[in-house]
Simulated scan of single mutants.
Amino acid sequence: MISLTPDDALLIADIQNDFLPGGALGIRGGDEILPPLLSYMRRFHTHGLPVFLTRDWHPPHHCSFRTEGGVWPVHCVAGSPGSLPPAIFDAPASAVIIYKAIDADHEAYSAFQDTLLHRHLRAIGVRRLFIGGLATDYCVLNTVKDARALGYAVCLLTDGIRAVNLRPEDGRHAEEEMINLGAVPVHVEMLTA
C-alpha cells in the first residue's frame, strides 16, 4: 500500500486520439487504461496534488514520420484531432500540459527532453512521480529513465500503461528495465490516501 504525500505528482504520457485504437498510431488496448488513469487523476486532484499531462505536438513534417525518413506514420500533428485527448479523458482544469517533440528535426520521447518539466517540478517541490500513459516502451520508458537520472522517486502505474510492441516483448522488457532502475510498480487499488 502507498500513501500519497505533499511531494507527489502524477505524470500521464500522451493520452491522445492518434495513440488510441483507430488512431494513426493506435496502440492495442490503449483505451483500456483510461479508467484507471482517470481514477489516478481524481485521487491526485482530490488531494490537491499536481497533475501533469504530456502531449506529442509535432509539426507537419516531423523527423519521426515515415514520410520524412522516420519509423512512425504521421501522428499527433499539433492541433489536429489526433493530437487531442478523447472526450472521456476529462482532466482537471489545474492539470499542466507539457508539449513535447515540437521541433521538426528532433525526436523527443521523454517528457523531460527539451521541456520545462524538471524546472516546474523542482519549483513546486515534487520528489516522487507516479508515471503512466502511452506508450510503455517509448515515452513512458524514456520519461522514467530521465526521472530516475534526475533523482526523482518513481511509481510506475502498471494498470495505466500499454506498449506499442514493435517487437512482441518490447513492453515487458521496458517494464523490467524501469523496475531495475528503481521504479516501484503500483496499481490504483494500492493508493491508501
Results as ranks from 00 to 15, higher is better:
158 T>A: 07
110 S>D: 02
118 H>Q: 14
155 C>Q: 11
178 M>D: 06
95 A>I: 05
2 I>T: 08
53 L>P: 06
74 V>N: 00
21 P>F: 06
43 R>F: 14
2 I>S: 05
30 G>H: 00
41 M>F: 02
63 C>M: 15
129 L>E: 14
99 Y>E: 15
15 I>H: 01
2 I>V: 08
81 P>K: 02
133 G>Y: 04
164 V>G: 01
145 K>Q: 15
190 M>F: 08
78 A>E: 10
123 A>D: 15
12 I>Y: 01
11 L>F: 12
67 T>G: 11
124 I>W: 09
179 I>K: 08
17 N>F: 00
134 L>G: 01
106 H>A: 08
147 A>K: 00
5 T>A: 11
25 L>G: 01
32 E>N: 10
2 I>R: 04
149 A>K: 10
57 W>K: 12
97 I>A: 11
102 I>N: 06
175 E>L: 10
101 A>K: 05
33 I>F: 06
58 H>P: 15
110 S>M: 02
165 N>M: 07
186 V>M: 09
44 F>P: 04
104 A>W: 14
163 A>L: 03
129 L>M: 11
163 A>Y: 00
153 A>W: 04
136 T>Y: 00
70 G>I: 08
17 N>Q: 15
189 E>T: 14
58 H>T: 15
101 A>Y: 04
192 T>L: 04
31 D>V: 06
29 G>M: 04
170 D>M: 05
183 A>R: 01
51 V>N: 01
40 Y>W: 14
91 A>N: 00
47 H>E: 10
62 H>W: 10
190 M>E: 13
117 L>S: 07
102 I>C: 10
141 L>I: 09
32 E>V: 12
98 I>T: 05
40 Y>T: 00
162 R>P: 05
54 T>Q: 07
93 A>W: 09
168 P>K: 03
101 A>D: 05
53 L>N: 09
12 I>K: 00
59 P>Y: 12
119 R>I: 13
80 S>H: 06
182 G>T: 05
79 G>C: 08
167 R>L: 10
124 I>E: 10
119 R>C: 11
134 L>V: 07
65 F>E: 01
144 V>C: 07
178 M>N: 13
29 G>Q: 05
8 D>M: 07
76 C>N: 08
13 A>I: 07
94 S>W: 03
145 K>M: 09
178 M>W: 15
114 D>P: 05
139 C>P: 03
44 F>S: 11
143 T>S: 14
82 G>H: 00
143 T>Q: 12
176 E>Y: 12
162 R>M: 09
57 W>Y: 14
188 V>K: 07
107 E>Y: 08
19 F>G: 00
75 H>R: 08
162 R>T: 04
72 W>H: 02
52 F>K: 03
56 D>Q: 04
62 H>L: 11
115 T>S: 10
58 H>F: 15
69 G>W: 08
68 E>K: 04
64 S>Q: 04
73 P>N: 04
26 G>Q: 15
78 A>M: 13
138 Y>H: 12
181 L>I: 06
181 L>N: 11
173 H>T: 15
59 P>Q: 12
135 A>K: 01
15 I>W: 03
137 D>M: 06
183 A>I: 12
28 R>C: 01
59 P>L: 11
11 L>N: 09
171 G>V: 06
114 D>T: 13
143 T>L: 08
